[in-house]
Design a binder for these strands. Sequence first.
DNA 1: CGCAAAACATGATAAACATCATATTTTTTG
DNA 2: CAAAAAATATGATGTTTATCATGTTTTGCG
Lengths: 205, 205
Amino acid sequence: MLDELTETRYGKDDFIFREGDPAEYFHIVKEGTVKCVKSSPQGKECTLKMLMPGDLFCCDATVFDGACHPGSAKPMGNVSVLRIKKDVYYDILRRNPDAAIAVIKYLGNRLNEAQEKAKILALDRADQRLAMLLVDMAAKSGVSDPEGIRLNIRITREDMANMVGTTTETAIRIMSRFKREQLVTGTANRLIIRNMERLKAFASA
Amino acid sequence: MLDELTETRYGKDDFIFREGDPAEYFHIVKEGTVKCVKSSPQGKECTLKMLMPGDLFCCDATVFDGACHPGSAKPMGNVSVLRIKKDVYYDILRRNPDAAIAVIKYLGNRLNEAQEKAKILALDRADQRLAMLLVDMAAKSGVSDPEGIRLNIRITREDMANMVGTTTETAIRIMSRFKREQLVTGTANRLIIRNMERLKAFASA
DNA sequence: CGCAAAACATGATAAACATCATATTTTTTG
DNA sequence: CAAAAAATATGATGTTTATCATGTTTTGCG
């Protein structure tokens, strides 16, 4: 059964799959960070979720029903992904109630997360959303640094803009302000959160 | 086992449960429409989803882990809801792989829906979002009418505003414009879509 | 029915944000 | 290391949306 589990590596400019492709596999992130994105006909892009090691994707209806991917999956840097053919995945779930319940719990959390994201987009300002993102990323992929908490993934202002639903320019302006106010420092390759407390306070003000 | 299934009726001003309450039951909508809402500390409200008969809620992690409801559930008019205690629900899933897989599919669809909603909030204008909502509601709960497609649930401009992430005033202004342009007519109690095609075209322009 | 409350409407004003343009800095790459 | 490309920065300007205010219409209810 586990022969069916294959590992694939992807680089920065690859696509793991594209919006509209037929969904044939169930995926798990093994190493690195993968982003789920959707884009508009006008070419604007929106990042729905950053998947970290252990995260499942395409664990949902899409796979079973043989429908198309509702969004694309792109690596952020070098990543390694495990894949299983959908019928094998289905069999595992059918024979293994614990696995099915684990997937239900996982999907439930993802749903809550997605709804929280929608709420934030609906109710909060761009600068607050960006502050929340920084706090969030610091918690998830921050490492201790003499100057504060450093993020160990490369995130450009454009990436941030796509994650919080603004334009690149607006994200840059907000980050400039945060830098002026000593909340953060650095650019994509070396981004440091200098004052978590004030950033958190700002996020929920 | 099915003794554990209880039916409860709620009216317009009740809460089925409130944000922050401990989650103890798994729920299914039997009759009527239920809305899932979250609100901000400032008292702004955001409607995440309208649940129709057959929809599950609290089918996710929240129930198992005994955590708190991340949002509130409110009836839109008179509704009837079925409830099962969480441990009974858990047992059903554990013993019944088909049920578990059905829940996985359902949650997968809900996740896709929530992510699509986030994308729309991130990328589209308020007037387009409102047009999409009208098209959507017409498809889901519209009935044929000499003047066009009539919605058979009561939806105020304020409800619409909460569903598309704007203010009541903005929703009213947009609806006034749509009325002027003969796309819709009527108010909360009798809302009619007069031109689906143009509304659809506007939504994705 | 008639009255009160809710819903709808619209103007004036300001804040938030997008867009386009251009310059500088940082990063990547041959 | 130097050149090219990508990322960051910032100004000017216009659009979109929120806010506050005030009046009208519709609806629910005793």
